[in-house]
Amino acid sequence: MTTTGRNGSAVHETVQRIAHTVASALHNGGGNPFDLSASLITHADDPVALAAARVLGADVLAPWAFLGMPVSQGDLALAGGAARAFPPDTSSVPSTWTHWGLTAALHRAGPGGAPAAVAAAEPEVAWAVDGSWQQITHRFAQLASLAGPTATALLPAAAARADDLSRGFVRAMRRQDWVQAAAVGRWLAAAGCAPASLGLAAGLALVAQVGAGDARAALHVRAAQALARGER
């Protein structure tokens, strides 16, 4: 990941801190109230915090999505502010999809729990059909925040490429690319399509141990484990 520049370093650090907080909430369960915005000592409209929330996308609301924990008004404001401050770059698949995922999660988690259909239509997913196994592994890893309990067009697309994603998972493990391994493992868990011979649970446990230095890897592992348990 790029961390050049003062703002870049600040965003990267804040992404790590938010990811760590969310991963801890997913790991520890719904026993304690979750209020991400209250845990950040900063202004509610701090652009760095909004940028970090935009990078993490729907995962900012993961404790609600995965465990049903109540969403604070501050967290809704943080996610909404991130979506408004950083609109999608329509030429970028990850930017478009992650923005859509954040907006859809906001619609569902907000007052009244509006269905996802209220949000804009899903972006296209044709790239998942034609790409090589390396390309779709890389792409699905970028979109891991969308691998959650809510069905999207990405889930059947991931299931259709289960063998390729499994191959990508193994490659990421051998390369010690823990974030990519955890992200792809999260997709395999969400789609429920991992071959038994892959040893996904053991692989994720290994990533949790050796890859915990990157909070995004830890977040993906906790999300994958929650999906494997069938929570929500």
Binding site: G8, T42, A51
Partner: peptide, 20 residues
């Protein structure tokens, strides 16, 4: 978090896109 920035700058937008 580090404060001191009052609005999303072009640099910040580029950084977000790079991280995405």
């Amino acid at each position: 978090t580090r404060a001191g920035v009052t609005a999303p700058t072009d640099e910040l937008v580029e950084e977000v896109e790079a991280l995405l």
